[in-house]
Design a protein around this nucleic acid. Structure first.
Lengths: 225, 225
DNA sequence: ATAGTTTTGTGATATTCATCACATTTCATA
DNA sequence: TATGAAATGTGATGAATATCACAAAACTAT
């Protein structure tokens, strides 16, 4: 059954710290929602009323910057979405959009707060997760601003291969415009750079299908721009 | 007395949620340390063994990026320093350096963890703070990468005036090289841009002393590059 | 299938900045 | 106050990449 959290294969490490009674509460107070590729899961500027747990599919977290849309990061399951935007502000400070068909759990915010109250382990897991997010975000920002476009693009490709798809060949879930928004460059530059990678025999592309031919090269480019 | 937290004028909003007994524990398990301008408070790569609370002075949080040192952000009291680096990783993921003479409290990490356990209010305050940090950091990163150097420099000046010193005239606590590391540009560009601001009658500089002459202009530059 | 929309490829040009190379000034401290 | 070190000012040059302007291709939905 969808709604029995104790049987859910997607359970978070934080939830694994809950006892059966607390899991029962969670089971009774969440709903599973499916989003299609392209759907908005959280919209910047709206009130944040739920905790969202991503259990299937890939999403982008993005904010409207001073000039362009900026993709802050991509996220894959299992992870909570929008904790910062829910506990840190009344109104959502960023948007979250499905890049693939997704399944998420909407958890009532007061129920979630009660779990935080009742279980110190649960709380501490959440604190640790938030801490890791912040460190990651510092690191990502430093890379993005210091590396050249080549290096950042190599990073994105490697991230998809190593982290999101665990395969040397995959279908890009985002457009070149979005890659630009992710690494702070123009769509045109992304296009040119991808062609260049292909010409150099580092990757092979067929539409959105991307295959890594020479991973070592990509890693070198990632390091040395 | 320095070590009685219930009398401390610098107490954090989280600590305000503690009862007198918990405050007593805190009092008995922390030490106040003074740092001189330029001193390292936390060093990237070392083990993180204490929670640090900044109660006086200005600090910079910085990481070694792929090419340059990057100043992630500046922080002023009252704030905890290095929560993410302490709970998110075994080893410090960034450095913190005093930009002015500082006073900080070193709090034993197990004592701090116990407070998190005992007080849900305390925990939740910490969670909220971490959430706000993350949102801030997204925003900062988007600005930095999208705005031109002019706009970023204007932002830094305004931030000092509005946030850190609350005065239109103040002594810059960082060098032009450091401003460069903060807004991802070269020292030379910072120098040129500051001269330009001065020539345009927007600011007046005398050594490290900076006076804002035309704040409206700065705000416009901040918005429009 | 087809019309319309979105995405991608690619050349030409312009802009922003980094880098290099010094000169000058300011600061720290012996 | 003298002296070396650090910080700053400024010109010349080049590199990376944004922007503009189209053309072509690939999707989407009737």
């Amino acid at each position: 059954m969808d709604s029995d959290c104790s049987l859910c294969p997607y359970i978070s490490t934080a939830e694994a710290k809950l006892d059966s009674c607390q899991l029962k509460t969670l089971s009774d107070n969440h709903i599973v929602v499916r989003f299609k590729k392209g759907d908005t899961i959280i919209k910047q500027g709206t009130y944040s009323t739920n905790i969202i747990f991503l259990r299937k599919g890939l999403v982008k977290i993005h904010i409207t910057g001073p000039y362009n849309e900026q993709i802050v990061k991509l996220a894959k399951p299992p992870t909570y979405l929008g904790l910062p935007t829910t506990f840190g502000a009344k109104v959502n400070q960023y948007s979250i959009t499905a890049l693939e068909d997704c399944e998420v759990c909407f958890i009532d915010i007061t129920v979630f707060r009660n779990l935080l109250k009742e279980s110190e382990h649960f709380s501490f897991e959440i604190i640790q997760a938030l801490c890791r997010y912040e460190i990651e975000s510092f690191r990502r920002c430093a890379n993005r601003t210091q590396k050249l476009t080549r290096g950042n693009l190599a990073d994105v490709i490697l991230d998809f291969a190593n982290n999101f798809y665990q395969s040397e060949s995959f279908t890009l879930p985002i457009s070149q415009t979005e890659i630009g928004n992710l690494i702070d460059t123009s769509r045109e530059s992304v296009s040119r750079m991808l062609s260049e990678f292909e010409k150099d025999g580092i990757i092979k592309m067929n539409g959105k299908l991307l295959e890594i031919i020479n991973k070592k090269s990509l890693e070198l480019i990632s390091l040395n721009g």
